Computed example of a mutant assay.
Amino acid sequence: MASLLVFLGYDPSTNTRLPLMSAISRHTIRSSVFAKYQPIINLSTNRIVGCEALARWRADDGCETSIEPVIDELESQEDLALELTTCMFTCLKADLGTLLIEHPTFSVSVNLPPIVMGKNKILPVLEKLGLMPHLPQLTGEITERQALNEQGREAIRQARQLGARVAIDDFGTGQSGLQQLIGLEVDTIKIDQSFIRQLGTNIAAERLVRGIAALATILKVDIVAEGVETAEQASFLRAIGIEKGQGWLWSKALNPTELREWLS
């Protein structure tokens, strides 16, 4: 029933209504989508080192909800995917433009739909917004599932050619083999939160996370654990050499003012 309600436009987890896909247009995205920012923490110093920009939808009644239930449909349509990506970068520039100048080592992760990135449609957006000087601080996220097809691989190549970093999101949920991963030129692996939640209660999950940490060392890439909710989880991750975490243990997604307060 829950999945049906979400499909019809209702998100029971937040008691808010999402627009039907048939009603979503470039205009509704432009007028209703905004960004919040979840901190990424250095596990050794417990200090914020970056954040992930998360798309949120503001309904007519003012309620806010994640666009996650409709993200796959949005990203499958080139015009809507481009509008969503443009909106997120526009928010990033307005919200964090000065912050990126003041904190040159601070990084921001943004989801990059392969249908847009693979066709090199992001460059004009970045140039128009004046974000080109900040490309080394930007990380384009692409899911493990998306990264394994040719469109995803082309998106990764385009992002790296621009000078942005690339992260594989939701790592561990796809069907990738070691040989496929070796062929991907990425900078960061983000372990899916479904595995992090089971740390301390599921031996298989702990072994898998250890294996991913070892794989990241072999491939010489950074690693971020998503969905960290307890100090025990953070301690386990720190002990096996994972340097960065993201989750409610530290903070939910913040508005720009709240994020600035963290940094100050």
Results as ranks from 00 to 15, higher is better:
Leu8Tyr: 06
Asp11Ile: 02
Asp11Phe: 01
Ser13Lys: 10
Thr16Arg: 02
Thr16Pro: 00
Leu18Ile: 07
Ala23Thr: 01
His27Asn: 12
Arg30Trp: 13
Ser32Trp: 01
Phe34Gly: 13
Leu43Ser: 10
Arg47Ala: 14
Ile48Asp: 04
Glu52Asp: 13
Arg56Val: 08
Ala59Ile: 05
Ala59Phe: 07
Ala59Asn: 12
Asp61Gly: 00
Glu68Ile: 04
Asp72Ala: 05
Ser76Trp: 00
Ser76Asn: 06
Leu82Cys: 07
Leu82Trp: 00
Glu83Gln: 13
Leu84Lys: 01
Cys87Gln: 14
Met88Ala: 06
Thr90Lys: 14
Leu92Thr: 04
Ala94Asp: 10
Leu100Ile: 09
Ile101Gly: 02
Pro104Ile: 11
Pro113Ser: 15
Lys119Trp: 11
Leu123Gly: 01
Pro124Ser: 09
Leu129Asn: 10
Gly130Tyr: 11
Gly130Val: 11
Leu131Gln: 05
Met132Lys: 01
Pro133Gly: 05
Gly140His: 08
Glu144Lys: 02
Glu150Ala: 14
Gln151Lys: 12
Gly152Lys: 11
Arg153His: 13
Gly163Thr: 03
Ile168Leu: 15
Asp169Ile: 14
Phe171Val: 08
Gln180Ser: 05
Ile191Gln: 11
Phe195Leu: 13
Arg197Leu: 04
Arg197Lys: 06
Leu199Asn: 04
Ala204Val: 15
Ala205Trp: 09
Ala205Thr: 04
Arg207Met: 10
Arg207Tyr: 12
Leu208Phe: 15
Arg210Trp: 02
Ile212Gly: 09
Leu215Ala: 07
Ala216Phe: 05
Leu219Trp: 00
Lys220Pro: 00
Ala225Gly: 08
Ala225Phe: 04
Glu226Gly: 03
Thr230Gly: 01
Thr230Asp: 07
Glu232Thr: 15
Gln233Glu: 14
Gly241Ile: 14
Lys244Trp: 04
Gly247Lys: 06
Gly247Met: 10
Leu249Asn: 08
Trp250Phe: 11
Lys252Ile: 05
Leu254Asp: 07
Asn255Phe: 06
Trp262Arg: 12
Trp262Ile: 02
